[in-house]
Amino acid sequence: MSGNKKTAGFEPKIVGFLCNWCSYAGADKAGTAQTPYPPNVHVVKVMCSGRVDPQFVMEAYENGADGVIILACHPGDCHYKEGNYRAVQRNRILKQLLSQFGIEEERCRLDYVSAGEGEKFVRVITEMVESVKRLGPLSVNKKRAAV
């Protein structure tokens, strides 16, 4: 479903769901270190990655996101004990659904970033932006459907 023509200078829009305790703090840590990274990821803070409803991800694609990234606490470190495991479970099912829609797996990434991992946050975001850039724009969304 994604565009075959990889637009030159394509800047993907990516929605990032960050849990309040680890990955949001990790993003702040990257901020404190003032390491620049691509500005393509727009952050939605949730209390826990377990709050990320698959419909949020679908809504993001539908509204023009080319990718979604869910960042959680590392396994065993969840502030709410096991919310990140629920996030993983839901993500696994979601990916099956996405493949049925023809949405590439790389457009939905789940990773773990702790509050101390500013550098990892930068790396994960940079990788995500690069991989979505390679895929090109996603055309399931309302706005691009007409194009």
């Binding site: 826990c48 377990g50 709050r51």
Partner: peptide, 10 residues
């Protein structure tokens, strides 16, 4: 309740 919201999405 600690307000994590896991039940909400579940």
């Amino acid at each position: 309740c600690h307000g994590c919201g896991t039940c909400v999405s579940g």
